[in-house]
Amino acid sequence: MKRFLTVVTLAGLMALGLVRPALAEEPDWTLYQQLLEQHLTQQRAQGIDLAWLDYPAVKADPRFAQLVRQLAEFDPKRLEGQQEQLVFYINAYNILAINVVVQNWPLKSIKDASPWYKSVWKIDAGQLGGETVSLDQVEHQILRPMGEPRIHFAIVCASLSCPDLRAEPYTAARLEQQLDDQLQGFLANSTKGLVATERGVKLSKIFDWFEDDFGGEQALKAWLGQQLGQPEQLIDGYLDYNWSLNGKTES
């Protein structure tokens, strides 16, 4: 009888919202949102239109160090389903790319953060769930195997020719709309995404590097035509990729 009352009481408390079962949950991205609102603007640099991050201000802002700590302490096992996992690791990649820059400041390119014998993508970028990871691990071992090619327009490797750093965190509730928006914005940016030519289109090198993620060359052509509302597109080469930092490089 006593056990029955305990169960009923617990169920009643849960119904009242006073006790909640253990549920999957996303991290709190409030600090990330605040940092983006304060330090991210739209600018043009070296002929490229982009979202411009004030790296010296981010480095000096105590909220960024706090955000990196929160990311390290959050347990990814609390996530449920692919949407939440995509959101977490896309946001994490972008935060850790910024972290690589500020931890190795001053830089003119993220590539300057690594020693000559090691790729910057393979150096320690920070921690996720208490484990040290590289940007390479997050992108190639976690995100790409999920089979969502639009990640390539959401993750930002701190460079001018990268897709724009979004002015808000990604969230599971809005992920589809956010990814579509990133894709369309990148394709519409003729300074780094896509340029129409007499023969077809010149594309960001991202489409060359990750062609397989779009199903191969023929599938990519058809996919581009679908996105542009036009027949299958002829790929007329690729745009130069500018690895200069996508933000302020001096204090």
Rank of each mutant, 00 (worst) to 15 (best):
P21G: 10
K192P: 01
R174A: 11
G129P: 02
F207V: 07
K59D: 12
P145R: 07
S134H: 05
S114H: 06
G126I: 02
P149M: 08
I48N: 07
W121E: 08
N94W: 00
F64N: 05
L10A: 14
G81I: 12
R3A: 15
A172C: 02
G130F: 11
I235A: 09
G216N: 11
D213F: 08
V195L: 13
I90K: 02
S244M: 04
M1F: 13
N94Y: 02
E198S: 15
V68I: 12
T249P: 04
F207C: 05
K77I: 00
D240T: 14
I110M: 05
L36K: 11
V201Q: 09
M146R: 10
A173I: 08
A97E: 02
I90V: 10
L16V: 09
L245S: 05
K192M: 09
D124C: 04
D49C: 03
Y117T: 14
K108Q: 14
V133H: 02
A72D: 04
A196C: 10
Q184M: 10
V195E: 06
E250N: 11
F214N: 08
D49T: 10
N91H: 04
P62R: 15
V68A: 12
K118S: 11
R150L: 12
Q227K: 14
E232P: 04
V58P: 00
W116A: 14
V19C: 09
G17P: 03
M14T: 15
F4E: 15
H152F: 02
L165D: 01
G237S: 12
D180F: 00
E168D: 10
L31H: 05
V195Y: 03
F186I: 04
R166I: 11
V8Q: 09
L135S: 02
A57W: 12
F74C: 09
L86P: 00
L16H: 01
L194Q: 07
L86V: 07
R63M: 11
Q43L: 13
N242I: 11
Q127V: 05
Q103W: 07
D28N: 14
G130M: 10
T30Y: 05
M14D: 07
Y241R: 08
Q46K: 09
V19D: 00
L16K: 12
D28P: 03
R44L: 02
D54R: 13
G147F: 07
M1Y: 12
A173S: 14
K205V: 09
N94D: 03
F64G: 06
C162N: 04
V102C: 02
R199T: 14
V195M: 10
R78D: 00
A167N: 15
F153N: 06
L107Y: 08
T249A: 15
K192L: 04
Y89N: 01
L175V: 08
K205P: 02
A158D: 00
L96R: 06
L71N: 05
S114E: 07
Y93Q: 05
T30R: 15
A45P: 01
F4W: 13
Q70S: 13
G229H: 08
Y117C: 07
P115F: 09
G12E: 02
T6Y: 09
V8T: 12
L183W: 04
V100T: 09
A154C: 04
